[in-house]
Write a protein that binds this DNA or RNA. Structure first.
Length: 274
DNA sequence: CGGGCGGCCTGGAGGC
DNA sequence: TGCCTCCAGGCCGCCC
């Protein structure tokens, strides 16, 4: 489900309701997520603490708590994090919930269990195993065409795989990689080291503008993405190529094709992507 | 180090 | 109606 725009939309929605709330308890019904949840450590880091603010790093949601403790949440492919009334019945695959006072709970639901829940001292997040080694934020100041060009120069893999490599730039998953390459007019299969600097400049800009547009539209809901209040996104109607095999390219009128790169479906228009 | 691949899970869609 | 296969937005670890 979630790439950078969806996690950012989730962050913004939860940031309107969570700060100031106190975590009164944590209920864990299934510990086997992407990693086994350390219930003791999680409870020690969260219970009795007030939520201060929410941050996003790559596709990780960082919930900062008072007392220098941070909760890390990753949605994997099918994760959902929502605030629901306390009396709301348990959902299937609701593996974990944080009790917010006596009136609400923060529900984590994840059928495929590729998600992740962990905690880490706030001051030492730079050394948190999942966050250390991540590349620049695509919407931040330290990502641009030059940075992308430096990474592309020593890679002969397809440009789409390079753009999806989180050590190069974070947050770009399978949907937005296809969309950004279409926006930039670059064939996703093209070896990264055979693309001119000016075109990589254009690609960096396309990544940025695609992600920003998606955030503005509330993210992409293909099947199940929702923000913290359960609202779906709208960017799916603006997707130019993703999941549109055989349809007409909105820019040149060509026919969109689907190919496999790195075992992932990849969509592009042979008419206007070279 | 780069690059290719399999695996982790469940559910939904489509074919027969 | 079932049963089967394929596919899915992420990420990691293994191998060469």
């Amino acid at each position: 489900m979630p790439e950078l725009p969806e996690v950012e939309v989730l962050r913004r929605s939860l940031d309107r309701v969570l700060p100031g709330r106190r975590i009164e308890g944590v209920v864990v019904r299934e510990t086997r997520l992407r990693e086994v949840v350390d219930v003791t450590a999680l409870a020690a880091a969260t219970v009795g603490r007030t939520i201060e603010r929410l941050e996003r790093r790559a596709k990780y949601l960082l919930i900062h708590l008072e007392g220098s403790s941070t909760l890390l949440v990753h949605l994997g492919m099918s994760g959902r994090l929502t605030v629901v009334p306390a009396e709301e019945p348990l959902e299937a695959h609701e593996h974990l919930a944080f009790l917010l006072g006596s009136t609400h709970r923060l529900r984590f639901r994840d059928p495929r269990r590729f998600g992740l829940i962990a905690s880490w001292p706030t001051g030492r997040l730079a050394s948190e195993p999942h966050l250390a080694g991540l590349g620049p934020e695509p919407l931040g100041a330290d990502f641009d065409g030059q940075r992308l060009a430096r990474a592309a120069r020593r890679r002969r893999a397809a440009i789409k795989l390079v753009v999806m490599d989180p050590t190069v730039v974070v947050g770009v998953g399978n949907i937005y990689a296809s969309e950004a390459l279409h926006r930039a007019g670059i064939d996703p299969r093209r070896p990264a080291n055979r693309i001119a600097a000016a075109r990589l400049e254009r690609l960096a800009e396309a990544i940025r503008s695609t992600l920003e547009a998606a955030i503005e539209q509330g993210g992409t809901t293909l099947s199940d993405f929702a923000d913290g209040a359960g609202n779906a996104g709208y960017f799916q109607v603006a997707l130019a190529v993703y999941d549109r095999d055989g349809e007409t390219c909105p820019r040149c009128g060509g026919t969109i094709r689907r190919v496999i790169l790195g075992q992932r479906s990849t969509y592009y228009c042979p008419g206007c992507q070279r």
